[in-house]
Design a protein around this nucleic acid. Structure first.
Lengths: 240, 240
DNA sequence: CGCAGCCTTGATATTCTTCAAGCATAGTGG
DNA sequence: CCACTATGCTTGAAGAATATCAAGGCTGCG
């Protein structure tokens, strides 16, 4: 972890993403305990700043409060990197390290972001008492596994158009600040990141975007994408 | 879940895989509580028998005691299936459903197997009291996420030879009944299953096995594979 | 204004899939 | 016990999808 501002953004009670985060479902007392015993601090990250480095000792999970991050993973020998996930507010980072002593992924901010550092030992302690917290934690873990399996399914069986359409729709859902689908998606990541995540060459991503544009499915303005025909995109994402 | 024998195979105390399963690390008292309060029953499965059907209400996890199972996943519309994982003794099934009300995967026995059904509500209750159990559960969850991310990395970035070499070495590790690497691997799954898991056509798997054979890396006797040159296989799995 | 990074597009090369045929194996019933 | 059949596996040839190589354009920042 690298140096970050020590400024403390919204406390749990005032936090916009409380509804979706690990603390969701806690009452006022619980929320207070969570904030003081479990949340170690809040990190304010600048674009491209690293939050977690692979190999760092694991005792902290991270909850995205604002912004967006990517997690990356490399082969043991360093060859072949891949983006494993894009993380929007409410998602938990570091879960794949629960079985190890050290973090298994790098995590980097795609835009200016804030992240809550969560003490894993303290979380464990607090879960003994707060069933709602345990339930929520397990929910997030399950969702994460589910999401990854969906990614595996994409990487294993889907062609380029399906992969890209699915990602765009994914980013659009929950991309609206209200958590609702938005008709315009701002890509916070480079074409390179997208390609890596989808298991494609970056040129393929570029070409596919152009094809979607020509087909009238969307409009491309740099990293802003206007979804013009959600229905057809959804059809492509599902069945090709 | 389909009908299974009601015979109860090894109790926890006598179980060979206790060392690797969810109950690892529990003392005698804990083990007793685990067996009586958390383990609902043990399923004896015949080859090809289904343990879990996608969509079944979720309140049970499964721990593999003996044998091997595969989990499969399909697109919502049913097109495109993929094998998500092969599960050997000690592994937990159903974790991806923790965030949902219903199971998200199918699970099928690849050979005659026994599986412990674990009540998720009871497990949650018992974890409040037994820290070691919580720790172990989180460890298994983390390992599962880690494993899946490694699969994503393979599916996204690796060529055919790398994928297959990595799988063979994976199956060899822990394939020995003592949990140690074995020099001969018995594939419990079809070429089709392997291909699906690796995101390839089954013909590609077959061809690649032949190439490995010609190169003197292994010998193929149906589903029994003798690994003749682990080192070179490992090199291929890592860097191609 | 100009540089640097990012993105698009085109041409070519490669990998993998698909289609098709034949072989081997394990299981079945005579 | 043996022949028979279904299933799974291997191999070959053709074709499709995608990567790679190469060049040029756009954009945002200094």
């Amino acid at each position: 972890m690298q140096s970050t501002s020590t400024h403390r953004p919204p406390r749990c009670l005032d936090c916009d993403t409380r509804r979706h985060c690990l603390a969701a479902g806690l009452d006022a007392t619980g929320l207070d305990a969570f904030e003081h015993q479990v949340v170690l601090r809040r990190h304010v990250l600048k674009r491209h700043q690293r939050l977690v480095a692979r190999g760092a000792p694991f005792d902290t999970l991270y909850s995205v409060q604002q912004g967006q991050l990517k997690t990356e993973r490399a082969m043991p020998d360093g060859s072949r990197r891949q983006v494993i996930g894009f993380h929007q507010p409410g998602r938990l980072l570091g879960l794949e390290s629960l079985g190890a002593n050290s973090h298994r992924c790098d995590a980097l901010a795609l835009c200016d972001s804030t992240v809550c550092a969560i003490s894993y030992p303290s979380l464990t302690r607090m879960m003994k008492q707060y069933t709602a917290l345990t339930r929520r934690f397990h929910q997030l873990v399950g969702t994460e596994l589910d999401r990854q399996q969906t990614s595996m399914l994409m990487l294993g069986t889907a062609k380029t158009p399906q992969r890209l359409a699915a990602l765009l729709l994914d980013l659009a859902d929950g991309g609206g600040d209200d958590g609702c689908p938005a008709d315009t998606v701002t890509l916070r990541m480079s074409r390179d990141d997208i390609a890596s995540y989808l298991g494609l060459a970056l040129e393929s991503v570029s070409r596919q975007l152009s094809q979607f544009r020509v087909a009238g499915l969307l409009a491309v303005h740099n990293r802003r994408i206007d979804l013009l025909d959600r229905e057809r995109l959804r059809g492509i994402a599902m069945a090709g």
